[in-house]
């Protein structure tokens, strides 16, 4: 399958018998539920494969160096910066981008609805990354994974997403417009599983949730 790696054949010969110098490989990515076969230059990142080859331009390029989170997607269910992943190394992976968050019938993901309701963006550039990252946060917290603010002595089991937890867990997603208050409210709302519940810190009450006028 890999031009550059006969060693990936089970029991294959020594790796130096692989055709040397090949700089491209075929890969299959399962993107938003559909298998996509690609012939990629090894230098192509998952981010560029999504945007340039698959024309899924929802995922954004901010810094291209892992420093802003705009490119966050879910890879095999885990959130990751697609700008630092090489497409060739992701062969066989299941990738979910912002385009794949809504249901097939167009029903928005609860986080997308909450982002609209809480005015969780201004220009919207960081939003696809924020959304994918927040999907990851909900899963990680439900799975009992601690954060820097959880403390190692905390009991195991699902972590309650307080505003401190959300801010820490989403710190890898920068928002140049400073829509953080709305983002935290939106994630808290979905995390609590009901409107407005469990959002205790002052920041959340500073801006009351707007009625859902945009949808």
């Amino acid at each position: 399958m890999h031009q550059a790696g006969s060693g990936s054949d089970p029991g294959g010969g020594p790796p130096h018998s692989a055709p040397d110098g090949a700089h491209r490989s075929r890969v299959t990515l399962r993107v938003n539920g559909t298998d996509r076969d690609l012939d990629v230059d090894h230098r192509v990142t998952l981010l560029d494969a999504l945007r340039e080859t698959l024309e899924l331009t929802g995922t954004k390029k901010g810094c291209d160096h892992g420093q802003c989170g705009a490119c966050t997607v879910l890879v095999d269910g885990r959130r990751a910066n697609s700008c630092l992943l090489l497409a060739v190394a992701q062969d066989g992976a299941e990738v979910t981008t912002v385009e794949g968050l809504a249901d097939a019938d167009g029903t928005l993901h609860p986080l997308q609805r909450a982002f609209l309701a809480h005015d969780a963006f201004q220009c919207g550039y960081c939003t696809p990354g924020q959304l994918c990252s927040a999907v990851g946060v909900l899963g990680e917290a439900a799975d009992g994974q601690p954060s820097h603010v959880t403390g190692t002595a905390a009991p195991s089991g699902p972590v309650t997403l307080t505003t401190d937890e959300i801010r820490e867990r989403l710190s890898g997603n920068l928002c140049r417009c400073g829509a953080y208050n709305g983002i935290v409210e939106a994630v808290a709302e979905v995390g609590a599983g009901m409107n407005g519940a469990d959002v205790t810190a002052p920041s959340s009450s500073a801006i009351p949730p707007r009625p859902d006028v945009i949808v």
Binding site: G5, P14, P15, H23, S25, R43, G66, L84, L86, A89
Partner: peptide
């Protein structure tokens, strides 16, 4: 441009490194 080898065993990885000058191991790549 660079070539890419997906290692399937530890020995294969070190062998591949030994016969390809200028190689680097790829972990998460971050």
């Amino acid at each position: 441009p660079f070539a890419y080898v997906r290692a399937t065993s530890l020995q294969q990885a070190v062998d591949a490194h030994a016969c390809r000058p200028g190689s680097r191991y790829l972990g998460g790549g971050t």
